[in-house]
Simulated scan of single mutants.
Amino acid sequence: MTMAYVAVDRQRARALRDDGRIEGPIAAHAVTPGLLRAHDLGAGDEDAEYTALAYAGVTALLTGSDPLRLVLAAELAAPPGGEDGFGRVELDGLGWTQVTALFADESGSADRVARARTLATGRDFDQVVDDVRIEALLDDSDLLWFAPTELDRLPEPAG
């Protein structure tokens, strides 16, 4: 089994849970051959999973409108291929039963995420991921692990 990390907003995550499935194409990040080569990592390396999750966190910044980012970790039956150094893949669909974890910003991260989102406005993924100002803001905003059953109890922005 392989993990894919899917950036979603809370509304789409709830729709996935309530409907049981969403159809693709769905943008995701995963440990692909290209990601492993680009970062000089091995297939079983824990840093490879963290790297794919971090890239999904950047995608969540670009695609979400919620004050806090949300990334779903979903188990795939077959490992995705791909030569993209960022582990970008497209899923044909996603079932809620595939979701094994949620990753969300802690409540105190809302201001940093908002500043990062402002800096990212009008830019594509490649530009955003290379911006050291955005990287610094996101590095100070860890994506915390939650069980899928905690979707309705994820942190809300502080304040």
Score class of each variant (00 low, 15 high):
27 A>Q: 12
64 G>M: 07
49 E>D: 14
21 R>V: 07
52 A>Q: 05
47 D>M: 13
115 R>W: 08
6 V>H: 01
126 D>N: 14
68 L>M: 08
105 D>F: 04
58 V>Y: 04
69 R>V: 00
26 I>W: 02
68 L>P: 01
139 D>V: 12
88 R>W: 15
128 V>D: 02
106 E>I: 04
3 M>G: 03
130 D>R: 13
36 L>R: 12
28 A>K: 02
93 G>P: 08
118 T>G: 11
61 L>P: 01
82 G>W: 12
97 T>I: 12
12 R>D: 11
73 A>Q: 03
38 A>W: 08
12 R>F: 12
29 H>C: 05
39 H>P: 10
62 L>G: 06
63 T>W: 04
31 V>C: 02
99 V>R: 01
144 L>C: 09
85 G>N: 06
77 A>G: 15
147 A>W: 02
45 D>F: 09
124 D>I: 07
136 A>T: 11
42 G>F: 15
82 G>H: 10
73 A>K: 00
156 E>R: 13
111 D>I: 08
98 Q>V: 03
90 E>C: 13
8 V>I: 08
87 G>H: 06
78 A>W: 15
30 A>C: 10
5 Y>V: 02
43 A>Q: 15
7 A>P: 03
44 G>T: 15
137 L>P: 00
21 R>F: 13
101 A>P: 01
155 P>C: 07
111 D>V: 06
28 A>H: 03
105 D>Q: 04
108 G>Y: 05
155 P>K: 03
87 G>N: 04
26 I>V: 07
72 L>M: 11
113 V>N: 01
5 Y>A: 00
123 R>S: 06
67 P>Y: 13
148 P>C: 05
61 L>W: 03
64 G>R: 04
32 T>D: 06
36 L>I: 09
156 E>H: 11
107 S>D: 09
105 D>M: 03
84 D>G: 11
22 I>L: 12
98 Q>G: 00
154 L>M: 08
82 G>F: 09
83 E>W: 15
30 A>E: 03
144 L>R: 05
133 R>F: 09
130 D>T: 10
44 G>E: 15
129 V>S: 05
76 L>Y: 08
136 A>V: 06
7 A>G: 02
9 D>F: 07
41 L>F: 07
49 E>N: 10
58 V>L: 11
118 T>I: 09
16 L>F: 03
64 G>V: 02
148 P>W: 04
147 A>D: 05
